[in-house]
């Protein structure tokens, strides 16, 4: 019978469809896995954002990855608590993000003021030239989890993972 660690290792090969440099384990979408007495596997997942359109694809990818490796029955269990946070992404995975061209998220600090008049500027490092002379262009980007930035030194636009 397959071990829980083996299941998690297999799932570490399943990439996020929108950020294909990270696995669904590194991203923190996979919270846990358990193996039942009959060898059936239950995977506990949590969505990044409520409306993340990639979640359905992630579910199918997880199911396919385990069925392909001979798991007889796969059950996906979705939990919402604790709420997903970018703090779950390990440092090694953040380095992979930067190498891929996406600025990794900083610590998920909650601003005390809801609508700050002057926002504390968190320095986001350009993934291309590593300059910190960067400007937030849009709070929202091509996917729910990213914002749009540009670099004043190398002139390149880039995406940054929102820290939540």
């Amino acid at each position: 019978m397959v071990a829980r660690e083996q299941v998690l290792a297999w799932l570490d090969e399943v990439k996020d469809p929108e950020v294909p440099v990270l696995s669904v384990v590194e991203l923190g979408v996979v919270r846990d896995a358990s193996v039942g007495a009959g060898g059936d596997v239950t995977v506990t997942i949590t969505p990044t954002y409520s409306g993340c359109p990639a979640l359905r694809v992630i579910e199918e990818s997880i199911r396919d990855a385990l069925l392909e490796r001979g798991v007889g029955q796969v059950t996906l269990h979705t939990v919402y608590s604790p709420a997903w946070t970018t703090d779950w992404i390990p440092a090694a995975a953040k380095a992979k993000l930067e190498a891929y061209g996406i600025a990794p998220p900083g610590p998920a600090a909650t601003e005390s003021e809801l609508v700050p008049l002057r926002r504390a500027v968190a320095s986001v490092r350009c993934p291309w030239c590593h300059s910190t002379r960067t400007v937030l262009r849009s709070e929202f980007g091509s996917t729910a989890c990213k914002a749009l930035w540009s670099c004043d030194d190398c002139g390149q636009p880039f995406e940054a993972f929102k820290a939540i």
Binding site: P47, G51, C52, S138, F140, G141
Partner: peptide, 19 residues
């Protein structure tokens, strides 16, 4: 930028409604 922002905000709302 606002087109992308409003589409993202709409998506969050519909995701919350879904749950």
């Amino acid at each position: 930028e606002e087109d992308i922002a409003l589409a993202n905000i709409a998506l969050d709302h519909i995701g919350q409604a879904n749950l």
